[in-house]
Design a protein around this nucleic acid. Structure first.
Length: 879
RNA sequence: GGGCGAUUAGCUCAGUUGGCUAGAGUAUCUCGUUUACACCGAGGAGGUCAAAGGUUCGAGUCCUUUAUCGCCCACCA
């Protein structure tokens, strides 16, 4: 097939991807004896479509995977999607409310079936988008967090932790989202700075400051610092009466160290049911708790005339009443305050005391490397003992800081979408609660009316995600056989045996706590292994003016599919890895996409040239013959670049690796080797060197490279995606150096031609095989009249080559060039001075490494020789 | 309050154990329609590497301090 003048990505990408799938090139082969490489794809939320940040991680992981395949490894990149309990649940609730409905009206079953319908269609879209980006994942192993197998593993994990006492049920203060009517974990709470009013109120003999007067109904304690001099006359436990919102109350004085005497009046009242800090104070002093606000955000009956009112409308009315009772002292209108909100599309958090399920992070009962440890200890130890490496390493301190502040993980949610908690309750004959925790519902129903009822709650999404690396490797064929224990399942699953622990986890730093840490927690507990040996963290993708992309501001959202449709997936991928570095945010711009597209087109046109030169001669493709100086030169460049690229990619330096690829293709291959081939084609080496080039570019731009590979039929039936890196034949260093001399001659001669505006020049050289062999290419590249061998030359003596060559420029014109010559001389003189100073410095000679000194000497020698040439020229033309 | 990051050419960024006469892409300027490519080719200009001090034969790179911007964690009622 004839290649068109410019590369049209849209004509090829779908076909190429279909070809890869047909040839099953992405499939892992656990039975193979190649070295293994495994990686789990972070499962995207099934909330609709993919964005640029998905494109980024798909690109990075795809490069990692394709690179590993090119190295001859058996690669498993396991894809999947996440049911995203909270995110999807809130989306569906929003849809319902737009139809004037709510979940209670349609009931649990109907709600779940609507949700299933929605996620199924999301999944379809998302999977096709992943393919469009070129993701070389093993689709035959696609997993979903609500698959039967994964549900079983979730239950296995819950049960095992429950039996060890690591999961417990307790009434604790939790983050309650009154909009979604569920608890959320500490990590899901975001703080937003807002300006609010700070009310100073009279409370008995005290003055207190509060931002939330609506919680103050139940306040019957005042707390102050034990050493606050202003209040020394009040003793801990003293009681007093005060006129308050709904009449007179009796209150008690409490002294506690957490109070900051500097803030407000140094006195506060507490509401233990609705504040984390207050709850802790109440626990310390064994105080009473009273609920003021219900789970919808309305005031309860104990608020008298305000009961039933929403807290937002109640606040000003309460202040009005306090004002008329003369209890408001002053109001600070500009108080800076942190508002807690649910980051997963919910409302303002209202702390509540609630009976919930928790994972205990401090109980030292988890067996790890032969010692019983707590989850907190294991989380720390796997990093300090180097079982897991975090890239970049600076995130280790962020991670440790999080562990230090870690509290028990609340895992129960009051939403419907998700993994149901595998716990059943019933009343025993004495009316006490019996609890059953198991993989399947209890079968013992003999007690008549006392039926088992399953816990209505579901689990935090991250509980199931935390099992992702190993739950996805359990063989689904045997997973529902309950005669097998979980240990049996691990043993009988070939994939688990071969691919776990996974080689690396590539993900964003923003989910290091949600996901990375919790994977370590669950996986070490269930399998006795770490989930992965390395973690590579990427940053956020920002808009060209540095803004965060967010769904609430649609103008900041870039749809990767638009870019793919316009310029192709390869250009998108190249744009995303330009300037990417671990842990740092990056800016995405059209310019980068354009640069990527141009690169693809450059490669495409190299292919067109090769196609034209081959002219359908097939037998030329097979023999690798390395002949000319240029062949040796490019072979040495390619081999060198290849070893650099392998090393850079092994260390996840994507941007730098691409930089090496870019220069190799554009500067070495296209600018020099192709130009040379126009004059002296060596079809066999042209093809084999180009094949090497395509392999090196393939991980970055898989579509265009495969499209070229296929259309040129470079390996008949084999796809590029299944090739392996290969060294080209070793090049002869003398020939490499000879070509470099030719390059120098061309570069210098071009420069002179440009500067002097002369045409039709001739290059003279004294007897020299290399120049003779390459005379046509020199003539062509410099656009000379001729290249002639002479016994002694005249004109301008070229200074950058060790060969003897002259350009036939007459004296009067060369004077125009003299300024340039002077520049070169002073530049060269500077370099020589610098090198000389270095070598004259005894400390340098004594302390610097030997090879560096040798290098310096060699540089000096070259510079001196070069300067000599320059000076000789100058002298000749100045006479 | 605790911690982390950034600061290098107009813009976007590389620069991994100190060896740099500091590099790319893009933008800009000059020249060029050479049968792969104008999504191109050749050439040029553009930087006291945020500031100050220190360590060293040698600092963009290591240490200290400061400034500006950004982020994370904790949190004051």
């Amino acid at each position: 097939m004839k290649l068109e003048k410019t590369y049209q990505a849209s004509q090829f990408e779908d076909l190429i991807y279909a070809l890869w799938e047909k040839k099953e090139v992405f499939q892992a082969h656990p039975e193979s004896n190649k070295p293994k490489f495994s990686m789990a794809m972070p499962p995207p939320n099934e909330t609709g479509t993919l964005g640029v940040h998905h494109a980024l991680f798909l690109t990075l992981q795809d490069i990692i995977s394709r690179h590993a395949r090119l190295k001859g490894m058996d690669v498993l990149w396991l894809p999947g999607t996440d049911h995203a309990a909270l995110a999807v649940n809130s989306l569906i609730e929003k849809q319902l409310s737009e139809q004037g409905l709510n979940k209670h009206q349609i009931g649990r079953e109907e709600f779940l079936s609507r949700t299933r319908l929605f996620v199924a269609s999301s999944r379809g879209t998302m999977l096709s988008q992943m393919r469009a980006m070129g993701a070389s994942a093993d689709w035959s192993r696609l997993r979903y967090t609500l698959d039967d197998t994964l549900v079983r593993i979730v239950n296995e994990t819950f049960m095992a932790m429950y039996q060890k006492g690591l999961i417990y049920r307790g009434a604790r203060i939790v983050n309650w989202d009154p909009n979604l009517e569920t608890t959320v974990s500490d990590d899901e709470v975001e703080h937003q700075l807002e300006t609010t009013k700070l009310y100073y109120l009279k409370f008995g003999p005290f003055e207190i400051a509060t931002t939330r007067p609506e919680t103050k109904f139940g306040d019957k304690y005042v707390v102050m610092h034990p050493e606050d001099k202003r209040y020394l006359k009040y003793k801990h436990g003293d009681q007093f009466t005060a006129e308050w919102i709904n009449g007179q109350i009796t209150a008690t004085v409490i002294k506690d160290n957490v109070i900051d005497p500097e803030f407000g009046t140094g006195v506060m009242t507490i509401t233990p049911w609705h504040s984390e800090i207050d709850f802790e104070i109440a626990q310390r002093h064994n105080l009473d708790y009273e609920q003021i606000i219900d789970f919808h955000g309305n005031l309860l009956a104990n608020c008298g005339e305000f009961s039933g009112m929403n807290i937002r409308e109640a606040r000003p009315k309460i202040i009005d009443k306090l004002t008329t009772k003369n209890l408001v002292i002053k109001i600070d209108e500009n108080h800076q305050h942190n508002l807690s909100i649910n980051s997963r599309g919910g409302g303002v958090i209202e702390p509540q005391i609630k009976l919930q399920w928790f994972v205990d992070v401090n109980k030292p009962v988890v067996e790890w490397k032969g010692r019983e440890r707590s989850f907190k200890e294991i989380l720390t130890d796997v990093i300090t003992e180097k079982d897991i490496e975090i890239i970049p390493s600076r995130f280790e301190s962020t991670y440790f800081n999080w562990i230090n502040n870690l509290r028990d993980w609340c895992i129960s949610r009051q939403i419907w979408w998700g993994h149901r908690i595998p716990v059943w309750y019933r009343q025993d004959v004495d009316g006490r609660e019996e609890i059953y925790c198991g993989l399947t519902p209890p079968t013992d129903e003999s007690e008549g009316l006392r039926q088992w009822q399953q816990d209505p709650d579901t689990l935090d999404t991250w509980f199931s995600s935390s099992l992702w690396t190993f739950s996805t490797l359990i063989n689904p064929e045997i997973a529902l056989d309950y005669s097998l224990s979980f240990k049996d399942l691990m043993k009988e699953s070939l994939d688990f045996q071969k691919y776990h622990p996974t080689s690396i986890l590539e993900t964003g730093w923003d989910i290091i706590f949600f996901w990375v840490a919790r994977m370590i927690l669950s996986t070490t507990f269930m399998t006795g292994e770490v989930p992965f040996k390395k973690v590579y963290l990427h940053g956020l993708v920002r808009t060209s003016d540095g803004k965060k992309m967010s769904k609430s501001r649609p103008e900041t959202i870039i749809n990767p599919i638009d870019i793919i449709n316009q310029t192709g997936a390869d250009s998108l991928r190249l744009a995303l890895i330009t300037g990417v570095s671990p842990g740092n945010d990056q800016i995405f711009s059209d310019d980068k996409v354009k640069a990527g597209r141009n690169f693809c087109n450059k490669l495409w046109n190299i292919a067109r040239f090769i196609e034209g030169t081959l002219n359908g001669v097939d037998e030329e493709k097979e023999n690798v013959e390395i002949i000319s100086d240029a062949d040796h030169y490019i072979a040495s460049k390619i081999n060198h670049a290849q070893s650099q690229i392998i090393e850079l990619l092994d260390n996840y330096n994507f941007s730098e690796a691409y930089d090496v690829v870019y220069k190799l293709v554009w500067n070495d291959y296209a600018d020099w080797y192709i130009e040379f081939l126009k004059q002296y084609p060596n079809k066999s080496f042209m093809v084999s060197s180009f094949k090497s080039i395509l392999k090196l570019v393939h991980p970055f731009a898989p579509f265009v490279t495969e499209a070229i590979w296929q259309t040129l039929e470079l390996e008949n039936d084999n796809v590029l995606a299944l090739q392996e890196y290969q060294e080209l034949p070793r090049s002869n260093q003398n020939q490499v150096r000879a070509f470099e001399q030719i390059k120098n001659i061309v570069i210098e001669a071009r420069d002179i031609v440009t500067k002097t505006n002369l045409t039709n020049l001739t290059l003279y050289f004294t007897v020299n095989e290399s120049i003779k062999n390459n005379s046509e290419i020199i003539k062509r590249l410099v656009k000379l009249e001729g290249v002639e061998e002479v016994t002694s030359g005249t004109g301008f003596y070229l200074t950058t080559t060790t060969y003897k060559a002259w350009l036939d420029i007459d004296k009067s014109t060369i004077l125009n060039y003299l300024n340039k010559l002077n520049d070169l001389i002073s530049q060269s003189q500077k370099a020589i001075d610098l090198l000389n100073n270095r070598l004259n410095n005894q400390d340098y000679v004594n302390k610097a490494p030997k090879n560096l000194i040798d290098q310096t000497k060699a540089d000096l020698e070259n510079n001196l020789k070069y300067l000599g040439n320059l000076l000789e020229e100058k002298k000749r033309f100045s006479d």
